[in-house]
Amino acid sequence: MAEKKTCDLFDCGHRACGGCGAALSARLVTEAAGPETIVVASTGCMEVFSTPYPETAWKVPWIHSLFENAAAVASGIEAALKKQGRKEKVVIMAGDGATFDIGMICISGAFERGHDFTYICYDNEAYMNTGIQRSGATPYDASTTTSPAGKVSFGNKRPKKDMPAILAAHGAPYVATASIAYPADLMQKVQKAINTPGPCYVQVHAPCCTGWGFEGEQTIAIAKLAIETGLWVNFEMVDGTVTKVKKVVRKPVTEYLKTQKRFRHLFKPKLQEAEIAHIQAIADKNAEKYGIDIKVPPKKE
């Protein structure tokens, strides 16, 4: 039986774990961006699993330099393409560690200079490649190897950094958050970012089954729960103003927390009600800030 081959620009045979959210985000982003794209990668899990030398899963030009300088490399490529009058699009694929922490200076510089590129951050909320160390993107109370939960701690003590707001403050014309649970929405946002002149940013929620502690088949379900509980908000920001938000009928945060080992200490050996109330407050604050709640009319008796 002849097959119509799925023509993916991010090919099979990469070494991501089964059920990897980041690998799916790479597939969706390359599909949305198309073949006329140059991908710049930072160091991270995606760089390691997609390109163990001499293999590569990428079918578009792809370059990796260092952990911290993906935005600077992309700036150089964009300037060179402009000088040559070429029309290829420059897309950066970097993890949350490279974006929220290590690459911050280069990102700030590149956004301030106003290069025409699209920065995609696949956010799996810790440094997964080196063994699950906390990053600026790790949510409150998540247990990682550098913020372990135990007798004196409930895990990561700091809230997640608001990176979209930081880049919107740089004057980025288009900033969006997306999730692999909504692939059509993700691809539409990537295309919009690529077709908007100037530095654009898309932050993609990509659950990591190994780092968060769940079975690979649940990746999409957990990404969906993050949105349904209000702990992740899908929105679009044009010139610093929120223009579109994914609205939901919110579920309690415990529905999301209890699916993952990184939050297990909140339920065992005993239920930590104060800590869960704190996380619920974060979700409530998100809901109020972005207006994600759908008002359900009360049922008629």
Partner: peptide, 18 residues
């Protein structure tokens, strides 16, 4: 096909997936 992280699911000529 859309959600496979490997991209290893293909549509055959009858429009179903394998």
């Amino acid at each position: 096909r859309t959600l496979c992280p490997e991209g290893c699911i293909h549509e055959n000529t009858e429009g179903v997936f394998d």
